[in-house]
Computed example of a mutant assay.
Amino acid sequence: MSNCENILKNLSILYAEDEDSIREMLKDVLKNDFKKFITAKDGVEALSKFKESKFDIVITDIEMPKMDGLALASEIKKISKNTPVILLTAYSEKERLFKAIDVGITKYLVKPFAPDKLIDIICEIAKKELELDKKLKLNENLYYDKIKKDVFTNDGKRVHLTKKELQFLELLIKNRNRVVTLEEIENIIWSDEAFSEAALRALVKRVRQKTSKELIKNFPGVGYRLEIKK
């Protein structure tokens, strides 16, 4: 776990579990290992918190009232396709696990489990899927620091992006192998306010001015994609 400590300290975790004793126990054990460890007592509360704030990884029990773990994972994937979801289950039935694969669960863990086992899985996901131990080169002059979660020039100067500009760029970075659709951008970046394509175009223009004109490619009527120059 020691090589992973710095990575964990930069992670925001959302943990959904309806059993109070298990939820509070795991929170007490793990809360100091992460930047943020937020809990929810059911799927509805978890989905609400996910929409309100940014989380790197979601951990959810499969059996919960109001909205179960599979339904929660499905809703989260509609909002943020690449957010890893760890499913906690006491079940081993093939049908449930097949459904979890269809939903896009990153990993499942059978209960009961030791907290260290969960830490190992989170660390593995962070290194493999989130690449939090790397700096991403955007072009010959700029890079994105996944630890500091900010954009810098090669000589270490921070590029001053607003919260929304950085959020938009991070969305493209996380989905850099594909076009991020207008619907996804609206759901994630404009989740709490009215969306318009004019406002999005203005946002893209500002990000290009502060970074590079070639960094973001427009696919008219579809969305945007990050164009990383190797």
Rank of each mutant, 00 (worst) to 15 (best):
L14E: 00
F37D: 07
D20Q: 07
Y15Q: 05
K157W: 13
T39F: 08
A114K: 13
K134G: 05
D68N: 15
K35C: 01
K54H: 13
I105K: 07
I105H: 03
I38H: 00
D61V: 08
L203K: 00
D28T: 11
K94D: 05
K107I: 14
D145E: 04
R23N: 09
V179K: 01
R225G: 12
R158A: 09
K36M: 09
Q167T: 09
K94M: 12
K217V: 05
P112R: 09
V151N: 03
I62S: 12
E95A: 12
L169N: 14
E214M: 03
I185Q: 07
E17G: 11
S92I: 10
K135C: 14
T83W: 00
E129P: 06
F34D: 01
S48W: 03
N139D: 08
L14D: 00
K41L: 10
K157R: 15
V85T: 07
L47R: 04
I147R: 15
I79H: 08
A194G: 00
N139I: 04
A202G: 00
F37E: 01
S2W: 01
P65T: 10
M64K: 15
N6R: 03
G69L: 01
Y15E: 06
E75T: 09
E63I: 11
I22E: 10
I79L: 13
F219C: 06
I38A: 02
L11S: 06
K111V: 03
L72G: 07
V44H: 08
E75G: 10
N10Q: 13
I59H: 07
L47K: 09
K163E: 10
Y224W: 03
T211C: 15
E24L: 08
L215C: 02
F34T: 05
F168A: 03
V29H: 06
K78G: 14
I188F: 07
E186V: 14
L203R: 02
I38N: 01
E63M: 14
L132H: 13
S53C: 14
K157C: 14
W190I: 02
V58A: 05
N139F: 02
L142C: 02
D68P: 06
E170M: 05
K157I: 13
Q167V: 01
T162I: 06
F168D: 03
D150I: 09
L161F: 12
A198S: 13
V151L: 07
K149R: 08
I147G: 15
D155E: 10
M1C: 08
E227Q: 06
K78A: 15
G223L: 05
E170V: 05
D68A: 14
I228C: 12
N3R: 00
G43C: 10
N6I: 05
R206W: 02
N218E: 09
S53R: 12
R178S: 13
N3S: 13
N32G: 01
K128F: 15
G223K: 06
N175M: 06
E165P: 11
K36D: 06
D192R: 04
D155V: 03
D102C: 07
K163P: 04
T181V: 03
E165K: 11
P115Q: 02
T83Q: 04
D33V: 10
V207S: 09
S74M: 07
I122L: 12
E19M: 13
Y224S: 07
